[in-house]
Design a protein around this nucleic acid. Structure first.
Ligand code: ZN
Ligand code: ZN
Ligand code: ZN
Ligand code: ZN
Lengths: 140, 140
DNA sequence: TATAGAGTGAGAATCACTATCGATAACAGG
DNA sequence: CCTGTTATCGATAGTGATTCTCACTCTATA
């Protein structure tokens, strides 16, 4: 394949390309699985690329709003971000190492739609996340 | 009607039957759909049955731990509680009025298990919530 | 290069939720 | 009904994540 112009760092239309935005995006790109805003902030500071807390949150929220990152809440209610394939899809996350794999979800999509129709609901959408222990962590 | 031995107020084994616990449970029972701890606290105060904030949270957490209430996080990350059928199941919630209906979920259960197996994950569990606008609210 | 205004960040403000711990009240016995 | 044991209360002081402020900085562009 060609893998041309890395759009990774390209700011969304109307957005400016700043060092901070690039840094947050980079940290997200570098992360194995999900990462919290706090974690990203800490990593950037440790990496010698300090970015203000407010900015980290601002960029992450923007990325989430434009569908460039996934957001889920962990049990403590903290937001966890993950850079991944654009478009609707779901994950199977390892509760031990955080690694996440995108899973095929036609079945749920169909089920959700079906349930909505069956109950007379419109504009039906859903939150679906799978958790478990990956083979690598299970073996340890 | 007979309104028999309402188990609703029966404290879990080892728990004491207090006015506060009864009040929280009652508020939950009375609620249409999901309710936040803050909301329950406010309602009880307004109803002239004041209960400490800490107690509301304590009771709700206990009920959740013993599977007597469902807990979900809204977009703001706030916990929402709902008294309902014990045992694993999912809901279709109206984003307008909060009313929620329990939906049949064999399909998702099977799908979740399948995905776990397919990816070598063990102890797979899931978070699944459906949202939409109920017919009543859609008509308004 | 000059300029408009998007973007930044230190620090204050929110806010849901938890920890403290002395006071209070269930409840099993007697 | 009295009483000791203790679970439970609740006013209050945290905690910790996320947001708000707003003067200052830098990107994008003519
Ligand atoms: Zn793992
Ligand atoms: Zn889906
Ligand atoms: Zn409705
Ligand atoms: Zn399920």
């Amino acid at each position: 394949m060609t893998t041309p112009p890395r759009e990774m760092t390209r700011p969304a239309p109307g957005r400016r390309d700043t060092r901070q935005r690039r840094a947050v995006l980079g940290a997200l790109e570098r992360a194995t699985g999900f990462a919290s805003a706090q974690a990203i902030h800490a990593r950037l500071r440790a990496a010698g690329t300090p970015v203000g807390m407010a900015t980290v949150y601002r960029v992450l929220r923007d990325l989430a709003d434009t569908g460039q990152v996934d957001v889920v809440r962990d049990d403590a209610g903290e937001q966890q971000f993950r850079r991944c394939t654009p478009g609707h899809h779901h994950h199977l996350v390892c509760v031990a190492c955080g690694r996440a794999v995108e899973v095929e979800s036609v079945a749920v999509e169909r089920w959700a739609e079906e349930m909505g129709r069956a109950n007379g609901f419109t504009d039906v959408h859903h939150d679906v996340e799978l958790f478990g222990t990956c083979s690598r962590c299970a073996g340890a």
